[in-house]
Write a protein that binds this DNA or RNA. Structure first.
Lengths: 153, 153
DNA sequence: TAAATAGTTTATAAAAAACCGAACCAAATA
DNA sequence: TATTTGGTTCGGTTTTTTATAAACTATTTA
């Protein structure tokens, strides 16, 4: 595969990644920006380069970038004597990644707890089911944290 | 807390759960139906009961229920000599739950692989980062499967 | 056979999200 | 001081999503 082909495939991949992020709840343009910053060989893009590369308006870019920054998915660096911002994907470490899973799982677990606390019959079909799901999640999280502790040593 | 208070809180919780599912990408009414089926003491609802309880139109109910069924979040049972369908949450077992995590994680991992395979420089900042994320996920999945195997014994 | 039940489908209205262009602003440069 | 650069904000348009009412269908009951 020569460079030209590769770059063409990268541009196609940006679209696929965009769709993936759409499903994750990102706005379409935000997903494509994130895709751009992830796949291309060049890994830092200025505002204007993003606008140009994705063929979007400056306002769309401005909004999407602000969003991605707030979500901590991207960040930017600046260079001395250069007013431009250079955007890049924000690299989290593996512990942050796992903490992310944990946070999402805890949300479900909290919801299950709320439901359980309001059930008249704690042995009802749903109550038993929710309790089991919650316990499974608790178990997974405990084991995961054990693994982290071990790997920290 | 008396029964009346409890039921009032359950109705409020349905709204909260609805919002949670909205963020997960469910359509609003689908999220509320799922909430209803999860939180109330009564754990099976007919079509008309759902329409009545949530104050929604029959067509909205029909669509949302079809959706939830396709996603395998709910199911219904029928009773002999009764044309009505009784909807309830579909209970997955803990292995299915974990398989669900795994499937979602594999999606990210596949995406990372696609990106990596198109990178000119496998030691670029993003390439190294994506590789590390992927390896972490791989590790988590392996450990998780080990746990499952052990618990199956 | 007529009417009721248990929904589905269709057409459409209303609301929200996405996106754009143009005007705008602040800092740097000419 | 005027212009350029690097954006942001505002107002409006387009698109998509959500939800409805009304018409319809298929089965059962009277």
């Amino acid at each position: 595969m020569n460079t030209e082909e590769r770059i063409k495939k990268q541009r196609e991949l940006i679209e696929k990644i965009g769709l993936y992020f759409d499903k994750e709840g990102f706005q379409p343009i935000a997903g494509r920006i994130l895709g751009l910053l992830m796949v291309m060989d060049k890994e830092q893009f200025t505002f204007d380069e993003i606008v140009e590369e994705l063929q979007i308006s400056k306002s769309s870019a401005s909004n999407a970038l602000k969003n991605l920054e707030i979500r901590e998915d991207i960040e930017y660096i600046t260079l001395p004597g250069d007013r431009k911002r250079y955007f890049q994907v924000r690299k989290q470490d593996k512990f942050t990644l796992i903490k992310g899973f944990e946070k999402k799982m805890r949300q479900s677990m909290d919801m299950f707890d709320c439901i359980l606390s309001l059930k008249a019959d704690k042995n009802s079909s749903n109550a038993v089911f929710l309790k089991e799901m919650k316990d499974t999640m608790e178990f997974v999280l405990t084991q995961l944290n054990k693994l982290i502790e071990e790997s920290e040593k």
